[in-house]
Design a protein around this nucleic acid. Structure first.
Lengths: 342, 342
DNA sequence: GGCGGGGGTGTGAGCGTTAACAAGCCCGAA
DNA sequence: TTCGGGCTTGTTAACGCTCACACCCCCGCC
């Protein structure tokens, strides 16, 4: 197909001229306005195709109120959870005809959040999804500029005034703990995520609740930073304690580090110690041993985020039906968890 | 801070009025035009801050030639490589004052690529980075609409007419193979990535070259799909062959699956079989055993992409200094590789 | 003393689209 | 016949900004 070297791309007026109508009629056709005669509509569409016309999103956004772009504020897109959530949102947005602009925060302070949202606001995004499930994020999100619809991906307990989508972390943690208890373990230790991550807190809560409800002793919380290194180092300190027979890790990467520490010291999994993770990262199934874990449906999270945002666009008011129901996590039992030793 | 409920955000004219100048002077100040008196500049800036004025990127893009957004076409952002590259680009872009719009392809055919780039073009992005190091991608990219500066992240051998940034995959593979040979292995097997991935092909080439150059026999290529599952399954077929003492995997995830297969069958790493991966994913250091691998500097790749794009903006012509030098990968030796058995 | 020239600033015209309103047409009802 | 009203289309005005140009003032020069 001959590409025309420097020929300016067709604009709406070119289409209008070719179709013998006014530009406004072209606009109406493109926006599916009802009152256009069928024959006119076809004539316009023919011209559109002939000129390979593409409406200019910038002009569209400027003239109308609403752009077709959703902004996403994320934190660490190398982490599996955020990356998967981002992908889920992207898919859902594209399905709804929206594009995605992203800002990845380097530091999660109020100023960073502010400038991220400012950057997106400048681009006149139709709405914003914040994937930053930390306390600081929740606080920072509070100061959003007026009028930008926003949805937060986080656990319960964060920003009250914004709709939030979340996986039920407490329930997920309970699934893990109850699974381990049902295998006969006296109690379950927990390697948590960073204190200021809401998800980490909720998983701690779920873990504690499940233990208390079963009348078991609650070991001290061991705090990591989501990294395999943290799991490894905490694992090293845990490995000498004979009373540790089951460990629930707040994410799979920490579980991976823990497995490494256990393996290094000759502790067998699951014969000596059972391990359960959280996330179900793609490699979880192929660790040694394959990791029992709690799966989160990030695609579903993405879909609900976009749905909530679209709802907000229509509602126009700050209202909407909050809170949204939580996404239910799912226990995936593999070889890393087994019956109590002895 | 009192948020004004429905007060329309300040526009350039509001600032101009408050500062007692024309809107054009405000524009000049904001764009660092030289011919503005210092005192005027300060007066304008004061008004800007007082009104918390944010220039509207849409209007800016419409009026001027150039938007401040870079489009990124990616493929599977759950994979470590693409995710890390995306993050690298995002960082570099933000440092240069650009935002990022992403499109993640579900299917990597020509039509998908086309519509992805169309979607970005509609948003009037200033330029496009394509992270889709597959043959099909390279082919599809060829049909880019005129006038959109584009950079491709890929191995050598892809699209000729577009600037491309890449890590030297051939060199990386050689590093891995030469390392294994230097440990005394007779030859090195290779679990490759999918055939239509350029990176996979280049790693195969580097592996083959290194073996041939050392006068060793070249085992058949084993083709995987990047997943731990592929590494696991191929590993199962490999585990019975006594002549396999060293395996170079085209990425860490496949290596992870391979480790699983070996471990499951009681094959010791590195005593019986040495394994080397590619990527240096965060968990590589904490596998059992810690994985020797080839590290790619994705941040550097991102920086160079953005730099190349900015260069293209200025050059305006299709020229520029091609080809760009490749990013050098780096061997990271850990415990999964050791001396030849026996 | 008049005139060229360059900083500093204002004016007007777009950029490509949608919104709001007006206008023409054809219909049926009074 | 005449008038109101739905359907279809056109006209004009934003949207918020940059670009091109005109303008003014003050300087130094012939």
């Amino acid at each position: 197909m001959g590409q025309q070297p420097a020929a300016r791309a067709a604009v709406m007026n070119d289409v209008a001229r070719l179709a013998g109508v006014s530009h406004q009629t072209v606009s109406r056709v493109l926006n599916n306005h009802p009152s256009v005669r069928q024959e006119t509509r076809e004539r316009v569409m023919r011209a559109v195709h002939q000129l390979n016309y593409r409406p200019n999103a910038l002009a569209r956004g400027l003239a109308g109120r609403r752009s077709r772009v959703i902004g996403v504020v994320s934190f660490d897109t190398i982490l599996y959870g955020p990356a998967a959530t981002l992908l889920g949102i992207e898919r859902a947005a594209r399905a709804a005809g929206y594009g995605i602009s992203i800002v990845t925060l380097e530091q999660l302070d109020r100023a960073g959040m502010r400038s991220a949202i400012d950057a997106l606001t400048e681009q006149s995004v139709a709405g914003v999804v914040v994937i930053a499930p930390m306390m600081t994020a929740a606080v920072a999100v509070h100061g959003l500029p007026t009028g930008v619809p926003a949805v937060v991906v986080e656990s319960s307990g964060g920003a009250r005034e914004l709709p939030s989508i979340s996986v039920d972390q407490v329930a997920g943690a309970r699934l893990a703990v109850e699974h381990l208890l049902s295998l006969g373990h006296e109690t379950v230790w927990h390697i948590a995520g960073p204190r200021d991550w809401l998800e980490a807190r909720d998983r701690v809560d779920g873990w504690r609740l499940a233990l208390e409800q079963a009348g078991r002793s609650v070991p001290p919380v061991l705090v990591g930073d989501w990294s395999p290194r943290a799991g490894y180092e905490i694992g090293q300190s845990l490995v000498d304690r004979p009373d540790v027979t089951a460990v629930f890790c707040a994410n799979d990467h920490q579980a991976l580090g823990l497995l490494r520490a256990l393996h290094q010291r000759g502790v067998r999994v699951p014969e000596d110690v059972s391990v359960v993770g959280f996330d179900d990262i793609p490699e979880a199934e192929y660790l040694s041993p394959p990791l029992t874990t709690v799966r989160q449906d990030f695609d579903e999270v993405g879909r609900r985020c976009v749905a909530a945002l679209l709802e907000l666009f229509d509602a126009d008011g700050p209202a909407g039906r909050f809170p949204h129901p939580q996404v239910e996590p799912q226990l995936v039992v593999r070889a890393s968890s087994g019956g109590r030793k002895g």
